[in-house]
Amino acid sequence: MARTKLPPTVRQRRLGAELRRLRENAELSATQAGELFGATQSRISNIEAGGYAVSADRVRALARLYGCTDEALIEALTQMTGGRTRGWWEEYREILPAGMLDLAELEHHTHAMRVASVIHMPGLLQTRVHAHAVISAVEPPLAPYEVEHRVSHRIKRQAVLHGDRPTPLAATIHEAALRMEFGGASVARAQLEYLLTMSEEEHITLLVIPFEAGAFPNSGQGIIYLCGEVPQMDTVQLDTDHGSEYLDTPPQLTRYRSTLDRMESLALEPAKSRDVIHRIAQTL
């Protein structure tokens, strides 16, 4: 039986979307671009849909055709060529939703991350036991083996924070998340202690928004902001009831950068944030 072609990842679709934006900015139709490039309209459309692997040389040629002179952007686009990245997450291809694999791939390639969380601890900073308690509580309930797959995937994602070149992470967590006792008091205490340990790493900035800060933007939704080679290549990931949602248009990126800036401005400085975490852990 022939193997079914895998759908493009969010990273492949993003490359295509950026090439489409360059074409539209040049006021060319896909048919016109194909004629100028020596390709069919369907080939241009497939490239822009992420369904056709394109080389770095072709990306540079398309960028020249579209009149793009932003060399940093062009270089960032060329780094996304070559098709699907065969990372550790591929072992979950037939097991977990595609959005989870897309997130792992984006985190693998990102240059820095900003996350904000209100009710849950950021996945990249969860202990295995805490993650198990959180994932076990989803609706509809997951089978035990499904829970284990999701927990192991979440823990493997955390590799980007370790090693010789860890990814810088700025995490803003509301006090409400610190006080949620997923798995009971002992699990919650161990989770807070782990947060304190990770907050001492040079590449991790941990900020706490205390209850007394009052109202704040985006109060009902967690955010993962993945920084690309250039700001135009940033990506926002949101968790929703129907799965992961990825945003990358310039207005969306501007909005969420502003949201994160505002949340961070309301948070305590790192040392005082650690004091809050330590104080809450002592009460458990």
Rank of each mutant, 00 (worst) to 15 (best):
A171V: 08
I173H: 01
A131C: 09
P97R: 09
A177N: 13
A170M: 14
M100L: 15
G183W: 01
A112G: 14
L125Y: 00
M121I: 11
L101W: 01
A176C: 08
R165F: 13
H153S: 09
R165L: 13
H108V: 13
S136P: 06
L103Y: 04
P122C: 05
A159I: 10
R150H: 08
I135S: 01
V160E: 00
H109Y: 09
V147N: 01
V129F: 05
S117W: 08
V134M: 12
P144W: 06
L169E: 01
A177L: 10
V138S: 07
H111D: 15
M121T: 07
I173K: 02
A131F: 01
G163C: 04
R154W: 00
G163E: 01
I173N: 00
R128C: 08
P140R: 08
D164K: 09
R165I: 10
D164Y: 01
R154F: 00
V129L: 14
P140G: 07
V134G: 04
P97V: 02
A143K: 13
T172S: 11
H109A: 14
H149R: 07
W89R: 05
M113E: 11
L96R: 05
I119W: 06
A143V: 06
A131K: 06
A171L: 09
P140Q: 10
I155R: 04
E181V: 07
I155P: 06
A143N: 07
L169K: 02
A131Q: 03
Q126G: 12
R154E: 00
M100G: 09
R128T: 14
M113V: 08
L178V: 07
A170C: 15
V147G: 02
H162Y: 13
A159M: 11
A104F: 00
P122Q: 06
L161G: 03
E175T: 02
A98N: 06
H162N: 14
E146L: 06
A171F: 04
A159K: 13
A133N: 14
P166V: 03
Q158C: 09
E107N: 11
R157E: 14
L178D: 00
V160G: 00
H130G: 09
A112Q: 11
V118Y: 05
L125N: 01
A98H: 07
A137N: 13
V151I: 10
R179H: 09
P168H: 03
H120C: 10
I173L: 02
P122Y: 02
P141I: 06
P140S: 08
A176E: 13
A116V: 06
G123Y: 01
P166E: 00
R150P: 11
R128V: 12
L161Y: 01
H130M: 12
G184V: 00
L103R: 07
P166D: 02
H153C: 08
L106P: 07
V138G: 07
L169W: 00
H149G: 08
H108P: 10
M180V: 12
P141G: 06
E91R: 15
M100S: 11
G183N: 08
V129K: 15
A159Y: 02
E139Q: 14
T172A: 12
R128I: 11
V134D: 02
A112W: 02
S117E: 15
H132P: 04
D164T: 07
A131V: 03
T167A: 13
D164Q: 11
G123I: 05
Q158T: 08
P144K: 13
E90G: 05
A177S: 12
R93C: 01
V147I: 15
L178S: 03
S152F: 03
